[in-house]
Design a protein around this nucleic acid. Structure first.
Lengths: 114, 114
DNA sequence: ACTGGTATATAGTATCGCTAAGTAGCATCA
DNA sequence: TGATGCTACTTAGCGATACTATATACCAGT
């Protein structure tokens, strides 16, 4: 799917939170999981800006571990604030997506023009 | 619902396209419909930047009509390009929202850490 | 005159994902 | 040995979008 960039704004970070919540993981792996999900154009740079933001906002705990496959990995886990943020994200998603689908399924009527 | 701004990026314009597709309407009324939908914090300024963009991208036809309730209204209807854009929007929405819901409903497994 | 609802316009701001480039570890293979 | 490619992280700058704030203006009712 092409050009979904704008639609990913505000949701990609939530996706990253969700992926981290499944168990400790690191940027490169998160990128691959997003691509497997179907967001095939997501690249490392995009994910790293998100993980950096999560760090800055103190939503994750960090542990650096060596890898036999390359440079050390920075493993992330959600802390309490991160879990809370994830909950908020899904609430927002539920709200927004339900409203959009409501609009899509024609529940909105034309108002009378006076 | 608070602070859904980022999540609206990329979808609000699509919502406006959909609303216009239901029959000719104007900015102020579109704003009200979005608020009725549930996006209560959307204000006129936001919608006007969108309708201006639609104009600029030649997705709408415009007809100015007087109103007994205030200043003249600028009525919009979707032209062929606008209808096409709306179709594309819903395709993208289907794609993105289905992927997000897939993630939400736990279909993604942790990859094995080597 | 004043307020409030209707109606449009726009300059400036913040946020977010993307682009592009760089650094670096490790394995394979010519 | 050095070249390539995958793994892995970082960051400066860009573009698109929604929001903030303000301005202008028509009209009705008090």
């Amino acid at each position: 799917m092409e050009n979904i960039t704008e639609m990913l704004k505000g949701v990609l970070e939530g996706c990253v939170l969700e992926i981290i919540s499944r168990g400790e993981t690191y940027g490169y792996e998160i990128t691959q999981q997003l691509r497997e999900l179907g967001f095939t154009d997501v690249v490392e740079g995009t994910v790293y800006t998100i993980t950096m933001r999560l760090e800055k906002n103190n939503l994750v705990d960090i542990e650096k571990k060596p890898s036999t496959m390359g440079p050390p990995r920075k493993f992330y886990t959600l802390n309490a604030a991160g879990k809370e943020q994830l909950k908020i994200f899904w609430k927002k998603w539920e709200f927004v997506s339900s409203k959009i689908n409501e609009l899509k399924t024609n529940k909105i009527k034309r108002r009378e023009v006076k």
